[in-house]
Computed example of a mutant assay.
Amino acid sequence: MGMLSKIAKTGMAKKVVDEARKPQNQRKIKDALSSFTDKRKGGTERH
């Protein structure tokens, strides 16, 4: 059972990496990261 779980996790990790390499997904990731960091900066400056 443990070996099968490792194989499944490895397959999912490979799928995530493959999807992250696609240009259209890289754009989405950059936009989401930018949005997240902007929210964090906005939240810390309001004292």
Rank of each mutant, 00 (worst) to 15 (best):
M1N: 10
M1C: 08
G2L: 04
G2M: 04
G2T: 06
M3V: 12
M3T: 15
M3D: 15
L4P: 02
L4M: 11
L4D: 13
L4Y: 09
S5Y: 05
S5E: 12
S5I: 07
K6P: 03
I7C: 11
I7V: 15
K9Q: 13
K9A: 12
K9D: 15
T10S: 14
T10Q: 13
T10K: 13
G11I: 15
G11A: 15
M12I: 12
M12S: 12
M12F: 13
M12E: 09
A13F: 06
A13I: 03
A13C: 01
K15P: 00
V16D: 08
V16F: 06
V17S: 09
V17P: 01
D18I: 05
D18G: 10
E19C: 06
A20V: 00
R21E: 15
K22E: 03
K22R: 05
P23M: 01
P23R: 05
Q24R: 14
Q24M: 10
Q24D: 14
Q24G: 04
N25R: 02
Q26A: 03
Q26I: 10
R27E: 08
R27F: 08
R27Q: 13
R27H: 08
R27C: 02
R27P: 02
K28C: 07
K28L: 15
K28I: 11
K28A: 15
I29E: 00
I29T: 03
I29K: 02
K30H: 06
K30E: 07
K30M: 06
D31G: 06
A32H: 08
L33K: 13
L33H: 04
S34T: 04
S34D: 14
S34F: 02
S34G: 04
S34I: 06
S35D: 05
F36C: 05
F36P: 01
F36K: 10
T37F: 04
T37Q: 08
K39T: 04
K39S: 07
R40G: 05
R40W: 04
R40M: 13
K41I: 00
K41V: 03
K41C: 00
K41T: 03
G42M: 02
G43L: 01
T44K: 09
E45P: 03
E45D: 12
E45K: 11
